[in-house]
């Protein structure tokens, strides 16, 4: 009977999922027991955000980001807004380093 094999397969999959879930219980319990300590730390230091992404202000502290949180100050940051691929960089940035104040485009004839 092939349907026995199908039901057996489905039961095995459900059993495996249940086993994995049960195995994660100690880890969930440990995280739960650490929760009070973490909350004490958050409360003592007045923390507001997770230290997940440190590359920019609004990713390090998403809850504290400026209302206009477009690209903020971070050294060597790379453009990531669609507008940035349309708008050319300003003239001074296009000048080679040490080129002085006379851009080649405006050279006298």
């Amino acid at each position: 009977m092939k349907y026995h094999i199908l039901f057996g397969l489905l039961s095995a999959e459900l059993g495996l999922l249940a086993t994995l879930h049960l195995q994660s219980a100690p880890s969930a319990e440990r995280l739960q027991s650490e929760l009070a300590d973490k909350r004490a730390l958050v409360s003592k230091l007045g923390l507001t955000d997770l230290a997940l992404w440190t590359e920019a202000r609004y990713t390090r502290h998403p809850s504290q980001a400026d209302r206009f949180a477009a690209f903020q100050d971070f050294p060597s940051s790379i453009e990531h807004f669609p507008a940035g691929s349309i708008i050319a960089p300003p003239e001074p940035l296009r000048m080679p380093v040490g080129a002085g104040s006379a851009p080649s485009r405006h050279r006298d004839p």
């Binding site: 929760l35 909350r39 507001t48 504290q64 400026d66």
Partner: peptide
């Protein structure tokens, strides 16, 4: 789940100052 449970203890109210549209 982790973020919400942990940040449950975050300050009730924060007051920042905005000048020229930034903090």
């Amino acid at each position: 789940t982790e973020a919400l449970a942990t940040l449950e203890a975050s300050p009730q109210l924060l007051v920042q100052r905005a000048m020229a549209g930034r903090h």
